[in-house]
Design a protein around this nucleic acid. Sequence first.
RNA 1: GGCCCCAUCGUCUAGUCAGGCCUAGGACACCAGGUUUUCAUCCUGGCGACAGGGGUUCAAAUCCCCUUGGGGUCACCA
Length: 501
Amino acid sequence: MTSPSPLRVRFAPSPTGKLHVGGARTALFNWAFARRHGGTFLLRIEDTDRERSKPEYERAILEGLSWLGIQWDEGPDVGGPYGPYRQMERSAQHVAAARELEAKGAAYRCFCTTERLDALREAQAAKREKPGYDGLCRAIPRAEAERRVAAGEPAVLRFRVPEGHTQFVDLIRGDVTFQNAEVDDWVMVRTDGAPTYNFVVVCDDSAMAITHVLRGEEHLTNTPKQVLLYHALGYQVPRFGHFPLMLGTDGKKLSKRTGDTALEDYRDKGFPKEAVLNFLCLQGWALDGKTEVFGVEDLVANFDPTQVSKAGSIFDIQKFLWLSGEYIRRDSLESVADHCAPHVVAKGWLSASELQSKREWYLAAVATEKERIHTYAELAERIAYLFAPDDALVFDDKAEANGRKQLGDGNLVKGYVAWLTPQLAKGVEAAALRDATKAWMAERGAKFPALFQPLRCALTGEAGGPDLFDVMALLGPERTLARIESGIRRLSAPATTGTTP
RNA sequence: GGCCCCAUCGUCUAGUCAGGCCUAGGACACCAGGUUUUCAUCCUGGCGACAGGGGUUCAAAUCCCCUUGGGGUCACCA
């Protein structure tokens, strides 16, 4: 066998919110990249924002990834040889790196107050100058700085950005160059001693032997700061790759304004996880340009970060819904039924125990809608009519209009009911009843819609839906007749509420 | 506004790195027809794009430049 690949990648979310779908895609691509090359995929929690980091968010992120089946080889819960995997637990290393940098003169103490910084920014904005730290404290001799710090004066540690320019090769974008003059003397360590993201990310990626840093494009402008830091620390610079952003329908970074952003929202809405995975792949990557429906095994076998598109992609819920429907249609009846069950319970249609005791009936109900639904949650909505009161079914406007129009003088339907009633005495056998009904219709030379439209409205209250004999079978003889009688009466009556005011 | 990134159908994309095989392919959506008791599925067909302008070349969606447009980022957030 080949020797183990040293490739190591990571997904490093901050536990300050639910797992974003964009983050999920970043994790997925990193994971696939590692799997394809026999590398290691690790999870690191970037919890350096003490204010906003919450344990429950960390839990939610881990759950989200687990739901998708993205497994990490090392992480906060499973540990690993490069732990710990929460940044706050690695502060000893960060402090050491900060001291080293300060001693080398690559970083310096800054005593500027928030007030001065705010005023500075305001003045820069007023003069339309580029905002940024003016380097006032750069000139303070280290001895003096140390004295002031020892005296208890609040200070941050800033990185001393050198002259010149910084260049790196982005796996997705190619050469990227920044003039160092454009890079701020950014804060590495806060007044309270807590390190900031751009600082710890370098320390930890290096300590964890990360070979490829693949993340979202919003980090592109952070990269020069980090590259400079790698150089200052004498660390080997990893390869970088910045995935294009996932955008909302407004063309801007996906936000709650234009749709759900959290992975769990889609899980809760009943999207099959395979569909989520597949759709995430399609945002920025294509298997062969032709195949739309494929699984993670195809991603793993073919993923190459250099093939990811550079431009952002709008999150198209229509296509997502279509894809989701594809997965549901291809899945087995039992599986779909099981996935839909929680939504049926949530709607209150059936209890968990009824789902057990009426399993056959439930499966039959799911079978009637399986090819019509796009999400598991949609099933619960579509079978709602089965649980409505038989004498007060809500009629959809179009269904009622069609029913009234086709009903005519009502004689055909009345004749059918007279014929049907004794037929139902022995129960509803859908196929047989369907054939018998068609024969009955043929004898009379009647058009199908004349019978089926009023019946459909009476039975389901809707303009479209499953085969009516399947519906009758689900309803059973009594409820079928009760609905037909009540429905025909309503459709025969003057159209008082035909069109809602 | 500065800097950085980006630019193929309405949307996701193939093709761009290695220029000719592209009168630009696929998918979603949309439209029209077929199937069906209706809706959905399924089948057939249609609509629909290389942002604009210069260059380089025998040849450019593909390479270069400019313009325009879009996005990201400018925190003691990550």
